[in-house]
Amino acid sequence: MRPPALEATLRVGLLVAVGAIVAGCTPAPAPGPKHLTVWGTSGSAPGELRQPIGIAVTPSGTVFVADAGNHRVQAFDADGHFLRAFGARGKEPGEFLRPMDLNLDAQGRLYVAEHGGDRVQVFTQDGEPLRVVRGEGTPAGAFDAAAGVLVSPSGEIFVADFYNDRVVVFREDGAFDRVVGTPGRVLPGRLHYPTDLDWVDGQLVVADAYNNRIQLFTPEGEAVARWGGLLGSGLPGDAPGSFRVATGVAVDSLGRIYVADFENHRIQVFTSAGELLTLFGSQGTKPGEFERPTDLDIGPDGRIYVVDFGNDRVQAFAPLSKEMR
């Protein structure tokens, strides 16, 4: 029988050895990007933010923010200077009940998904309402909290339908076409409270938020890849590559996938195959720290804009190196 002290030493040694092997097999992620700027203070005056959630950046660098607590959309220049705001609480065209996410189509029209309003409204970039997309004609008959919106390169409109655990696809004219994903956990193609969408290499990227994972689908709806937790099962965690509620997703011009890892207070960046490239951020209020980031988007120059929900602000980071792939 070994003495207790020797036993303990052997156990520690074994753990160190296993740790070294695991670390050796898993390349350490590259350092995160440089912090550039931060804007927004808590409030409802022009330029102030209250519970901001979604973000979209135009090809010319205008940053639109879904200012959910104020039921409005605000526009800023690339450095965070206030440009304009539109919308107020209500159900009429041009009004909002909790705007959550934004996206732009190829013509530069702004799509806004509303959680409380159960609709997607389409606007000019000056805030003029153009039309409304609702969930009529879908199997459930309506959206139940439209959390995310994406316009594909072909003009199809994809809506993350939060409480119906699905993504609903509409043709360019707004007519319902099909559903992607089914409610559930763990298994491929099952969704649990999806919140955001993007597009990579001709495939739909879904922030499968409460499954704590990212899923990729063909445009027709076949689940083709997933990551987050053990084998993409969605087991929550804080290890690199795992998530605690993956609420936001964005894809840059090189096909790198950025994920807002909400309850881990960080951003993780992956290849389109799900290999972790880098991660950055931790909980806090200093520049570069986050309090529950919800969404992010990539500017035309590669800048990374992150909605820092709990701090009522937006933070901008320098582009990632093009070599990081």
Binding site: A68, R98, G116, A145, A147, T247, R292
Partner: peptide, 8 residues
């Protein structure tokens, strides 16, 4: 803790 749930 999450705004998607709170607004839901």
């Amino acid at each position: 803790s999450c705004p998607f749930c709170a607004f839901g």
